[in-house]
C-alpha cells in the first residue's frame, strides 16, 4: 500500500499529482501487480481533498489499464511499468548527459539550463494538450 502526498505549491492539480504518484510508484517498483491502492475514503480523509479528485485520478489510471476496481473489495494494480521503462532509462539518460555537456560548453549556467529545459518541456506539454 502506498500513501499519497500533495504539494500545494507545485501548481500541478491534485488529481494529476495522485496519477503521477501512482505511475511513479509503478515505475520504481513500489507497486506491483495485485497490490491494493488506498480506498477513496482513506485518501480523502488523509489528505483532506475532494473525493472527486481521487475518483478522477483512479478513473484515469483505470482507463490507462494500470489499475482495476473490484466493487466492494477495492482498487488493485493490474500492470507494472517497470519493465518497459527501465529498459529505456539508460539510453535516455545518456542522451540527456550529452545534451547537458553541450549546454555547458555553450556557456549556460545551471539556472539557465533549468529554465531552458522547463520552458521547452512546458511548451512541448502545451503542444500535446
Amino acid at each position: 500500500m502506498i500513501e499519497f502526498t500533495l504539494d500545494g505549491r507545485s501548481g500541478v492539480s491534485p488529481y494529476l499529482q495522485v496519477v503521477q504518484q501512482v505511475r511513479q510508484a509503478l515505475r520504481l517498483g513500489l507497486l506491483t501487480k495485485g497490490d491494493q491502492l488506498p480506498t477513496v475514503k482513506d485518501v480523502v480523509s488523509r489528505l483532506a481533498i475532494n473525493p472527486n479528485t481521487v475518483l478522477k485520478a483512479y478513473r484515469e489510471l483505470e482507463r490507462d489499464g494500470l489499475i482495476a476496481a473490484r466493487p466492494g473489495i477495492g482498487t488493485f494494480v493490474t500492470r507494472t511499468l517497470t519493465d518497459d521503462s527501465f529498459a529505456a532509462h539508460a539510453p535516455l539518460r545518456k542522451d540527456l548527459d550529452r545534451w547537458l555537456t553541450k549546454a555547458r560548453r555553450a556557456g549556460l549556467d545551471d539556472e539557465s539550463i533549468e529554465a531552458l529545459f522547463m520552458s521547452t518541456f512546458r511548451s512541448a506539454q502545451e503542444g500535446v494538450a
Partner: peptide, 26 residues
C-alpha cells in the same frame, strides 16, 4: 478531512465559502 470523508461516504453536495483560496484549493 471530516468534511471530505463525509462527501466520499454519503451522497451530499457541499457549498462552502472562504476568503482564503488556499483553504479551498484541495
Amino acid at each position: 478531512q471530516v468534511l471530505m470523508e463525509a462527501v466520499a461516504e454519503h451522497d451530499v453536495s457541499v457549498l462552502l465559502s472562504s476568503h482564503v483560496v488556499s483553504d479551498l484549493e484541495r
